[in-house]
Design a protein around this nucleic acid. Structure first.
Lengths: 168, 168
DNA sequence: TTGACTGAGTTCTATTTTGGAACTTAATAT
DNA sequence: ATATTAAGTTCCAAAATAGAACTCAGTCAA
């Protein structure tokens, strides 16, 4: 199976990765969340080739995650800003950040700290249950097929090994 | 810059991606969270080549995210299970799931629903501030350099454009 | 009014990574 | 003896990426 076919999987994780799962894409978005907007800034910060960067930016714009906005005319220059769809990826980046802080940080401590503007606290965001407000972890959760997966199975009747509701 | 050098960046997101940012890796982990453990099961479910799969599993084991456990002898057979380090990636997967549910789901609804065992509710987990319990989004957060980044800057004195504390 | 400089790309080639398909190996089952 | 199963390997072709140089439109400074 080719990578570009994963967008057709009946799985939200796969569909998300078809958009942000490419090499460099997530790091471009990290930079965007840190306030970078211009081609040269991304290129300087990431050290990726201009070629790849141009490609990735184009794809992110096509996918509605960044928008290309003129910031001057004569000469026309464009910068890249997060759309609402892009901003909504924040939890993904923060989760990666948090995991990296815990499992990949050296003796020097963490590279970046997050502050919640509203309450002013320096925090590490947590995944919680919006119903009971408990902090969540994988063992407390259970996955079950949703409507799209049920329809998909009814159509293709390839009922396989991990068909029933599954625990994590 | 080559992709394998990103693990040296002073950034937890980059370091995390150096481990789980490869093509397929995150999907292997999704399957692991859904309960899959065996080579053949991963291969059947994902449709990736056995070659790549073997490679990725090896790397995930080397990185301490999966462990290779014998589940029978004669013939010796091994399965792959999440370690604590692997289980701790759950928020990353869930964040991707949630984003995909919101931005990539079709008219058929979502592929998978999550249930919180403890309270029994069907929920979509949210990122919250552990201090004030508010649900978080990017605009409410601010990033500032942590100890590792400050040391890194002091060493390399390449003080660049996005050096000061940055808002998202 | 020529010559250097900027920012945002594009083009070219060489290298690395993937994908596809067939093959291996050890043990069991028929 | 032969087929089957699970977990890989091997080999070749195709695709993606890295590195470096080049383009292009407009500005600035002498």
């Amino acid at each position: 199976m080719r990578w570009n076919e994963i967008s057709k999987m009946t799985c939200s994780v796969a569909r998300s990765l078809s958009v942000v799962g490419d090499r460099w894409t997530m790091l471009i978005l990290r930079d965007a969340f840190l306030g970078l907007r211009r081609f040269e800034d991304f290129q300087n910060d990431l050290g990726m080739t201009r070629h790849r960067l141009a490609d990735r930016l184009r794809k992110l714009v096509a996918d509605g995650i960044l928008k290309r906005v003129a910031y001057q005319s004569r000469p026309k220059r464009y910068e890249y800003r997060l759309t609402e769809k892009g901003i909504d990826l924040y939890p993904v980046i923060v989760s990666l950040l948090k995991w990296g802080d815990r499992w990949m940080a050296g003796a020097e401590g963490v590279p970046i700290e997050l502050v919640h503007r509203k309450c002013g606290a320096h925090i590490t965001p947590a995944l919680t249950c919006p119903h009971c407000n408990d902090e969540l972890n994988a063992r407390q959760m259970m996955a079950r097929p949703g409507p799209a997966l049920l329809k998909h199975r009814a159509r293709s009747k390839n009922r396989g090994r991990h068909d029933p509701p599954i625990s994590v």
